[in-house]
């Protein structure tokens, strides 16, 4: 399908168990550079678990995952190399409450990429302009609205200049009036050519920028295709049912 394009993530028959519970049952996925992937499906279907195996916040027990040519194994060096190349945005923002916005963004570039403070702060400032809140640089996360916090979290992830961005339901914890400001940033990012894996139920976002969509249910990929295919002619009953439920809202 994407033979011509260079693949940046390869997921091959990945299985994951929590104790006896089989959370991922043989996931396969090939993501090309610059692709925007939307993952959706009912709660508990394994979307978070899957996206977190890509940067090894969760360990998989079978199968293989390659990120930009690096295989995720127990080797700590590989894990750190992959984490430097992938940024992640969480549902609960997970900003560091004891650090200012600026310090949140510059911490990893200074400590991991070994940039000097000035370079890190200049880059951070550019990113804050990009996500639309340069005036909040010296505030603490607790002083910002949810939408602003999530935009800081995006800037923080981007500061490491990752090749891939992972989003796990980035707008689910937000009040409705703040969802758009975060989605706007994500749309801009998608258009800039970033490779993105996004777990979300924002179908407007999917229509606008997704290249492909994957429907997860009970630890498996039930169906995948372009937004056109998924929205106009879903093949599986489960996909139809789920879409009708979330689109009726």
């Amino acid at each position: 399908m994407n033979d011509l394009k260079q693949s940046i993530i390869t997921v091959n028959d990945v299985h994951k168990w929590y104790g006896n519970f089989h959370a991922l049952k043989g996931i396969n996925m090939e993501v090309a550079k610059g692709e925007v992937i939307v993952i959706f499906g009912p709660s508990g279907s394994g979307k978070s678990t899957f996206i977190r195996t890509i940067n090894r916040l969760e360990e998989h027990q079978r199968g293989e995952i390659l990120v930009d040519g690096i295989e995720l194994t127990h080797d700590v060096r590989n894990i750190e190399a992959v984490r430097i190349e992938t940024g992640m945005v969480f549902q609960q923002f997970n900003l560091f409450p004891h650090l200012t916005v600026m310090q949140n963004i510059t911490l990893a570039p200074i400590q991991v990429r070994k940039w000097d403070k000035q370079k890190a702060e200049e880059t951070a400032m550019q990113l804050l302009v990009r996500v639309g809140i340069p005036e909040q640089a010296n505030k603490f996360p607790g002083q910002l609205s949810g939408g602003q916090q999530q935009r800081v979290a995006i800037a923080r992830a981007l500061a490491m200049q990752p090749k891939i961005m992972l989003f796990d339901e980035p707008t689910s914890a937000l009040d409705p009036e703040m969802i758009k400001e975060v989605l706007d940033v994500m749309v801009e990012l998608a258009k800039s050519g970033m490779t993105m894996l996004v777990v979300t139920h924002e179908m407007g976002f999917a229509r606008a920028v997704a290249n492909r969509m994957f429907f997860f249910d009970q630890g498996q990929i039930v169906e995948s295709g372009s937004p056109e295919e998924i929205f106009k002619a879903p093949k599986e009953e489960r996909t139809k049912l789920f879409l009708s439920q979330i689109l009726s809202h």
Binding site: N55, L57, E80, R83, I84, T86, G87, M88, F90, N94, L95, F96, L107, A108, Q111, V112, A153, R156, A157, M160
Partner: peptide, 10 residues
């Protein structure tokens, strides 16, 4: 907090 830090490569 641990996850966010790890995800950043710390």
């Amino acid at each position: 907090q641990f996850e966010a830090a790890h995800a950043l490569g710390l």
